[in-house]
């Protein structure tokens, strides 16, 4: 395990604005889930809290359940309800 292993987190639309940024790296630790990354983000950036119930989670461009266990180097994205079209 290298000390630099990380998970890339992407935030879009309302989540990006609530967090004040669209991209950050968080340290990887074995067994960490998407939901745990969100909880950590929410602690640091309370403006994200109202979005907790409605964000979808994607890992490496695929929708996944929140309890998905991450791997080092994963691209994790938190997606507010989409509104294309």
């Amino acid at each position: 395990m290298t000390g630099s292993a990380a998970v890339t987190v992407l935030l879009f639309a309302a989540a990006r604005e609530a967090a004040g940024r669209g991209r950050l790296d968080v340290p990887y630790r074995e067994g960490i889930t998407a939901a745990e990354v969100w909880k950590d983000l929410e602690r640091e950036r309370p403006a994200l809290a109202p979005l907790a119930g409605s964000v979808s989670v994607a890992v490496n461009h695929r929708f996944v359940p929140r309890d998905t266990v991450l791997a080092a180097g994963d691209e994790l994205a938190f997606l507010p309800p989409v509104s294309g079209g």
């Binding site: 639309a13 994607a58 929708f63 994205a77 997606l79 989409v82 509104s83 294309g84 079209g85």
Partner: peptide, 20 residues
């Protein structure tokens, strides 16, 4: 409208809002 990761922001008279 259900699953494609695209979002629209509506700019209207008096403000703007993310459409969800």
């Amino acid at each position: 409208k259900r699953i494609v990761p695209i979002w629209k922001r509506e700019f209207f008279e008096g403000g703007d809002v993310w459409v969800e």
